[in-house]
């Protein structure tokens, strides 16, 4: 049986997640791995918004902040189980995306970038300034998800890093599956169409405003869940999660890996999560080298790393 593109992508992803731990020299790498997965989830959201629909957001960390602080605050103030706090965070993010997206998605290009940027900054400022609730810039404790203890009673004793590697790995596979479903679906096709030509999309009956809003909401939920998982595995969170740098990181990961492809985005997230760790040997030149790598990729592989590499491999086959 021949696998479809979607099935191939999912099999490759699952295999990578399952096999790479065999080569981990220490349990520290489980930690790096789960960070990559959590980042990837947010970046897939960017792929849906920017890669499918062609809309930019420089404020998506704001939604990650909402997801993260929902996990910190809802269990304490509302008595919600952390798992339901993730859901609550996603719902709040979706509602915020709707409220914010409706007016600003009419903007295009740079203007949309700046408007979303404003939203992200707003969220991070609220988180930093409402000390009494959020703990301010110093951050706040996040309760344990409690799932590891349940897994232990089932006879599987994992340390924290191992547990989160598996759990966020599964979440990533689920997130990738949903995004790949969307790509080939009627909605995904309409999103890609409005990316290609907004005017042509409108003349075939696509309600462009509504579809952009849907893409914005879906991608906000991805960012929110990513933020929640980050908070839960760190058991501690600061307003930086909603900060400008985090928003830029998401977009950079997506563009570097290949903004049109889900696997590419994960690849980008992996590279940019690991690169700083690899470059630490260069000490003070770390940031310089990282900037250089990004610039070279954008100059020579404009479609992003993964699509460019794949094309080169396929090109040789022919």
């Amino acid at each position: 049986m021949k696998l479809s593109n979607k099935q191939t992508a999912l099999v490759v992803l699952a295999a990578l997640i399952a096999i790479t731990p065999l080569f981990f020299p220490s349990s520290y790498y489980f930690r790096v791995g789960s960070l990559i997965f959590v980042n990837s989830i947010a970046v897939i959201g960017i792929v849906i918004l920017a890669g499918y629909a062609g809309q930019i957001s420089l404020g998506h960390a704001g939604f990650a902040g909402i997801g993260a602080y929902a996990c910190a605050l809802a269990p304490v103030h509302l008595g919600l189980h952390p798992a339901f706090a993730v859901v609550l965070g996603a719902i709040i993010s979706a509602v915020m995306a709707y409220v914010v997206g409706r007016p600003i998605l009419r903007l295009k290009g740079y203007y949309l970038g700046v408007a979303t940027l404003g939203f992200g900054i707003l969220v991070s400022m609220v988180l930093a300034n409402e000390r009494e609730i959020t703990g301010g810039p110093d951050g706040i404790q996040v309760p344990d998800l409690g799932l590891r203890a349940i897994v232990k009673t089932m006879g599987l004793d994992l340390n924290n890093s191992e547990f989160w590697y598996i759990f966020s790995g599964l979440a990533l596979i689920l997130g990738a599956w949903v995004a790949l479903n969307l790509y080939d679906s009627p909605t995904g096709r309409a999103l890609r169409a409005l990316h290609g030509s907004e005017i042509a999309a409108r003349t075939v009956g696509i309600d462009v405003a509504r579809l952009k809003l849907q893409a914005f909401i879906i991608s906000a939920v991805y960012a929110s869940i990513s933020g929640s998982l980050l908070a839960l595995q760190n058991k501690f969170i600061t307003p930086d999660v909603a900060g400008f740098m985090h928003s830029i990181e998401m977009v950079t990961m997506a563009v570097l890996g290949g903004v049109g492809s889900v696997l590419g985005a994960i690849f980008g997230a992996a590279i940019l999560t690991m690169l700083p760790q690899l470059l630490t040997v260069f000490a003070e030149y770390e940031m310089l080298l990282m900037g250089l790598v990004m610039m070279l990729v954008m100059i020579f592989m404009r479609d992003g790393l993964l699509p460019s590499i794949l094309r080169r491999i396929r090109g040789k086959d022919e």
Binding site: N181, P186, R189, A190, V204, I206, Q214, I218
Partner: peptide, 18 residues
């Protein structure tokens, strides 16, 4: 296929979950 958008569009949730 995009020309058939009005016929093929439906619930976004159904699209996300295939």
């Amino acid at each position: 296929i995009t020309g058939y958008h009005l016929q093929e569009r439906g619930s976004v949730l159904a699209d996300l979950l295939n």
